[in-house]
Every structure is written in C-alpha cells, then in structure tokens.
Simulated assay, not measured.
Amino acid sequence: MANPTQGRSSSILPVSGRQAPQQAVLLWAAPQFVSKCGLHVLHHGRRKPPRRSFTCSASRLPSTEPPYVEEMLARENIRTRNTERKARIQKHLEKPEFSPSAYDTAWVAMVPLPDTDRQAPCFPQCVEWILQNQHCSGSWGINQFGLLANKDILLSTLACIIALKKWNVGSDHISRGLEFIGRNISTVMDKQIVSPIGFNLIFPGMFNHAIRMGLEFPVRETDISGILHLCEMELRRLAGEESNGKEAYLAFVAEEGLVSLLDRNEVMNFQRKNGSLFNSPAATAAVLVHRYDDKALQYLNSIVSIFGTTVPTVYPQNIYYQLSMVDMLEKIGISRHFSSEINSILDKAYIEMRK
C-alpha cells in the first residue's frame, strides 16, 4: 500500500509544552494559494484537541488596485499639497512674518539712555541679543544668498562690533568679528556681489568710525584705502546726479554712514508721523545716536516693546513685504489664484501713498 504522504511535503510542528516529543501534528501541505499567504497552526491548551486558526499576511499579497485608482490617488495627493501651499501663501500675504535684523538691532543697541550723560544703553536687551547671536564664523546676520560672506553680513557684523565696543562689552565677540571681516575684506570691493542700499557710503563711514574708536582690523593698508575710496567714488557719482529722490536717499544713508551729507533739519524733514525716518529702525536709531529726539525714541520704544530683544529691517513693514510678495507671485505666474488678496493689498498701498 502506498504511503499516503508520498509526493507531498510535510512538516512536524511540536505542540507547546513539555509533552511535545510525545505529541506531534503532521501537517499536510496546504494548497499553493494558501501556502503563499503563510499558514500558521496554533494550538491552545495541552489536553484539549488542538484548534487550528489560519492567518493570511496581506502584506504578501500583490496589489489589486487598478492603475486608474493609483493615478486618482496621486492626483488627490497633488491637489492636497497645492491646497496647503496656497493656504501658506495666503497666510503670508495677510499677516507677514518679521525676521530679526542684526544690522538694525545693532543700531538700536547704540542708542544711549537719555539723562545718563550717554554712558549707558537705552536698550540693553538689544546689546544682549548681539552677545547671544554671533555665528561661529564670527559674523552676525542672515545668509540669504548661500554665500559664506556677503556685503549684508559684513555690514551687520561691523555694526554689531561697533555697538559692543561703544558699551565696552563682549571683547571676545569683537575679536572674532574683526577676524571675520579681515578674512572677507575682498568682498567689500567686489562689484559682482550684490550691495545693500547705500553700502558704498555706509560701510566706509562706519569702517572709518570703528578705526577711530580704536578697533584694529587685520587688513592691509591698501584694503583700508580701497574701502575709503568707495565712499569718495559714490559721493562723486551723487554730485553729478540730478533726481527727485536724491535728497531722500542722502537723508536715508547719511546718519548711518556717519557722514555729513545733509544738516539736521534737512534729515528731520523726512521724519514720519510715527517718529521714524523711512520706517527704518536703523535710520531712526542713527539719529538718536547723534542727538535726542522724543518722537524718534517713542518709535523705537514701540518696536522694542513688540519684538522684545531685536527689531526688523522695516516697521511697520506689512505693505513693503506684501508688495514684494505680489511682485513675486506675478513673476512666477500664479497671481491669478490670489486676486482677492492682491486687490486688498493694492488698495491698502494706494491709501498709504495718499497719506
């Protein structure tokens, strides 16, 4: 008589417990479609007849979704991402986020406390922010262009160094900042690198002021001459320029550049109702560094009370930020999706310009 197990695969599974050698279950091979799923025999108890339960692992099964279903799910994911992206853009348009400016914070940190013979900072929290936010490279500022050093970072670093030197704090921070500027001094005169507004007047003026304060930059004399020459070239250019915005430009950069381009009354003609110059914390603070002005001080007090230890580049800046966002959306061709928000921003800008 033929062996009934012949030609079939089998396995001996021991029953749980100490009597396993005496009790064994001969498991006949299951049909092929079951064995692919994974067949498990579970025994419950020692004296009762074994109960068998079969479980199938779904993860081993091939996908049964038709191709059009997968394509539909992919399109749905794209729609979800686009909706989330649109919501983020709308949020930025309606309520701009403010980024701290190391440069403007440094100027605010330089403002002396009134009635103290200019011997103490009016905003010590800004001085502390400078001490706590130096990068390991020795610099201050936000690297927006992916470069190790750019002109904005160099200008921010120089301003922070001067602020710390003014109040005789952070000698180690000052040393690291001076070394950073020394390593990257060629960037100052590199015409291929984007310059902030007024850089060729402001940086040389502040650089010269820092030298007069006793700060020693690890640079060559030719570098110093080259930096000061930038200011001379810019002044020559401005002398031959006739434009309606020239006086406003000079007022904007004169105080920060520590150069006498306009007298005090001409500069203060550009003071706004909120006490600021051009809604710029740095330009407003530069006025207070040289002379006291009650409205200007109120403006800075209001900003610091809002932001705490640092200030943004422009405040209030909603309209500036929003208009730049509108310009960006126009350039990339998706402004039609935000027509309601854009119309609201343009209406607000028109009202601001009429004031």
Results as ranks from 00 to 15, higher is better:
330 E>A: 12
281 P>G: 09
282 A>H: 01
311 V>T: 13
285 A>D: 01
276 S>Y: 03
270 F>L: 11
287 V>F: 15
277 L>C: 06
269 N>F: 13
285 A>H: 08
276 S>H: 00
297 L>W: 10
270 F>D: 13
326 V>D: 02
328 M>P: 00
307 F>T: 10
307 F>V: 02
313 T>G: 08
274 N>W: 06
296 A>C: 11
281 P>N: 03
328 M>H: 11
292 Y>Q: 01
315 Y>G: 04
339 S>I: 11
337 H>G: 02
328 M>C: 10
265 N>T: 15
316 P>N: 06
318 N>E: 15
269 N>C: 10
332 I>C: 09
290 H>N: 10
328 M>F: 15
338 F>T: 12
309 T>L: 03
321 Y>N: 09
322 Q>V: 11
327 D>V: 14
326 V>L: 10
276 S>E: 10
342 I>E: 03
333 G>P: 00
311 V>K: 04
319 I>V: 14
341 E>R: 03
285 A>C: 05
328 M>W: 15
323 L>S: 03
267 V>K: 14
266 E>S: 15
302 S>E: 04
326 V>E: 01
301 N>V: 13
288 L>Q: 01
344 S>N: 05
336 R>A: 06
295 K>C: 00
264 R>K: 08
306 I>E: 15
312 P>I: 07
315 Y>M: 14
338 F>D: 13
326 V>H: 11
288 L>P: 01
